[in-house]
Structures are given as structure tokens and as C-alpha cells.
Amino acid sequence: MKTVSILGSTGSIGCSTIDLLGQAADRYQVDALVGGRNVERLASQAVALRARHAVIAEDGMLDELRDRLAGTGVTAAAGMAAVTEAAARPVDWTMSAITGAVGLAPTLAAIRNGGAVALANKEALVCAGDVMLRAVRDAGATLLPVDSEHNAVFQAMADRQHEEVDSIVLTASGGPFRRSTLEEMEQASPEAALRHPVWSMGAKITIDSASMFNKGLEIIEAARLFGLAEDRIQVLVHPQSVVHGMVQYSDGSVLAQLGAPDMRVPIAHALAWPRRMRTNAPRLDLAQVARLEFEAPDPVRFPALRLAREALRSGGAAPAVLSAANEIAVAAFLERRIGFLDIARLVERVIREIGVQDAETLESVLHWDMEARRVARAHLPTPGSGSRAA
């Protein structure tokens, strides 16, 4: 029986993981579940899966969590220190799905256990790639990508040698503005940007999909995961979201991973790796899909890809600055303080202002993350002013 912990169990990725564990309860023992603020959901998950330990990130919610778990045998804790302690508990497999920079320390703690860590937290490798990869090498840990695109590439590579790979392709749905003009994107509302044509996701990642910042972050993550230079990572817009990733080999062959757009598929692959597990995810019907389209992304309408590639080439703290500034910009857009195209403008301004800085430790990564947020906020218009970002 494999022991598992889930960091971010109450979020969408965490809930999908819980669903899969419920389908194979005889194969997995849940050690720790970590949630953000949803005490009711966390307690329900812990009881249903007979978890040993449950942690809520908010300090003030400990009493409520203890009340809900009274008599169940599940121990309870709260606060970010407790989150990191839970991540450090020795298990065979950890799902790292706490979004944002707050998930970096718990992810690092899980890696240092030396087990398998399923990565659904982009920031781990985007912001602190060098730090995380050093820890992986030192601990003998295994990173298993959960993002559908990286998991697809991981599957298409299998045990093949990296020197046989010419390039990889990450696919993008194109989001709601795939056919929109610059003028239409300039005037786009948050409601329009949140209408994703394929995936059902949280607000932040949905806006990132619309701007293609998610794909920019995935380029950086792919470079870290697969040890590839930036120019060997391609992006293609694929509106059907059926082909999730491809690998082109030196002999001209291209291997692709296909599947229905359901996150339980890559999560199940990571959970059961190196084997596979049966899931109730929908099966792909290519006859129903009928056609698969691919096109190059427009660099003018989607400058996020250029900014991400520049940050990857710059190295150091640049990817962390890009990610943090984008987080502030997306929040400001959702609050109607800036326009949709101002997201990329603000991110670029923050990157230029901070410049290239070293980020050799987790502490330095977090420092530049905070500095990028400070600079980004300084350039935002005041609420209700109606002006664009400074």
C-alpha cells in the first residue's frame, strides 16, 4: 500500500486527487491532508479517506477543525508552519497543489523526503527551479509533472534518452481571445476573459490561459523538468485541447499524448506511476472530435510568451519576478483596476525595473517575489480612478 499526502486537498486539483483515491482506497493510505480555508471540506475528506493528519492553513480555524474531527482519530493542526511540517512527513507520494509562492516551502519539504512529488504547483519550478532541482538531486526524489501538457510530454518521452529528443511541443487552447483583435482584447472585461471555451478552472489560471501567461510559465517549467534549452520548447495553439503535448525525436518521429480534457487523467498517471490505474474519466472519441487544428500563437496579441522566454534566458530571479508580477496584475484586472492587455504591460515594466538578480536560495527567491509584488502594486492606479497602470 502506497502512503500519500495531499498539499492543497480542498482545491480543484486536490479534489480530483481525492476522487481518484476514493476509487482505489485499497491501494493507498492517506497520511496528511492540507487545506486552505475550507474547514468543512477538509474535515470531510479526512474522515472519508481515514487520513492520519489534517492541517488548515489559517491559524484561526484550528478549533473548528478539531471540533469537526472530534472522535475520528484524525489529528489536527493549523498555520503555515504546520503546513510545512505536514509536507515533511515521510510518505511515498505527495501531491503538491498549493498555488502561489506560499506553496514553495511545503514543496521543498516534501522533496527532501526523497519520495515521489507530483507537481501541480507551477511556482515550484518557475520561481525556484534551481533550488528545487538541487534538492531533488540531493534527496534522490522523483518529480512527476501533473500539468496536462508536461505530463503529456513525460508520457511521450517515457524512458527514452534526452539526447534523442529534438524538441517538445506544449499545446494551448487559445482561450477565449484566440480570434479576437487587439482592439477587442484592449476592451475585454473580466467576464469575457473568464469564459474559457474548454477547461473549467479557477479565476487566476483562467485569466492566465486567456493571456497565455500560463503557457509562458509552462515553458519555464518544461525547461526545468526536461533539461531543455528554451529554443527546443515550442508552443502550438490547439483549440480542441485533445493533444496535450508532443515530443519530436531526432529520427523525425513525433509522439503525442491525447486524452479528454479532464485533469484526473494526468493526476492518475502521476498517482499510479510507473503503473497505470483505471479511472472514471471520460474516454476520448476521435470520431466525435472529427478534426484537430494547430496554429502558431500570435506574438503581438500574446506577448506573455516572449516575456517568459526572456525571463528563462535571463535566469536568476527573473522567472520569480515574472510570476509574482503577473499574479498582482491578474488580481488588478479582476478588480477592474487595469485592462486586459495591461497585464503584460505591467509585468514587463516590473521585470525591466528590477533587472536580473541572483536567486540561489529559497529565501532569495521569496525576497524577489515580494519585491516584484511591491513594485507591481506601486504601478497600479488607485481603486476607482479608472486610469491605466502607471
Rank of each mutant, 00 (worst) to 15 (best):
V4R: 04
L7A: 13
S16R: 01
G22I: 13
A25C: 11
A25L: 13
Q29C: 09
Q29I: 07
G35F: 06
G35Q: 07
N38W: 07
V39T: 14
A46V: 07
A48F: 04
L49I: 11
A51T: 05
A57E: 04
E58L: 01
L65P: 13
R68N: 02
L69F: 09
A70Y: 06
G71Q: 05
A77E: 14
G79I: 06
A87F: 04
P90H: 11
D92S: 15
D92E: 15
A97C: 02
L104D: 10
I111R: 09
G115P: 00
A116Q: 14
L119T: 09
L119R: 03
L119H: 08
N121K: 09
N121D: 11
G129M: 09
G129Q: 08
D138W: 06
T142L: 15
P145C: 03
D147T: 00
S148I: 03
E149F: 00
A152D: 06
F154K: 01
F154T: 03
Q155E: 01
D166T: 11
S167T: 01
R178N: 01
S180L: 13
S180E: 12
L182Y: 08
E183T: 15
E183K: 15
E184I: 10
P190W: 05
P190D: 04
A192Q: 15
L194I: 13
R195I: 04
R195T: 14
V198D: 02
W199L: 02
G202S: 03
I205W: 09
I205A: 08
I205K: 04
S211R: 01
E221Q: 07
A222Y: 06
A222W: 08
A222T: 14
L225W: 05
L228Y: 01
R232L: 02
V237F: 06
V237A: 03
Q240H: 13
V247P: 00
Q248C: 00
Y249F: 15
Y249G: 00
D251T: 10
D251C: 07
V254I: 15
A256V: 06
A256Y: 03
P266G: 03
I267W: 03
A270Q: 05
R275S: 15
R275V: 12
R276K: 08
M277P: 05
M277L: 14
R278C: 11
P282A: 12
R283C: 14
L284A: 10
L292V: 11
E295P: 05
P297T: 04
D298M: 06
P299R: 14
R301L: 13
P303N: 04
L305A: 09
L307P: 08
A308N: 08
E310N: 13
L312V: 12
G316F: 06
A317T: 07
A318H: 09
S323E: 03
L334W: 10
E335A: 15
I338N: 02
I338C: 02
I338S: 01
R345C: 02
V350E: 01
V350G: 04
I351F: 09
E353I: 13
V356P: 06
V356W: 01
V356C: 12
D358N: 14
A359F: 05
L362G: 14
S364N: 10
S364W: 10
H367S: 03
A372Q: 04
R373N: 02
R377G: 05
T382Y: 08
P383D: 12
A390C: 12
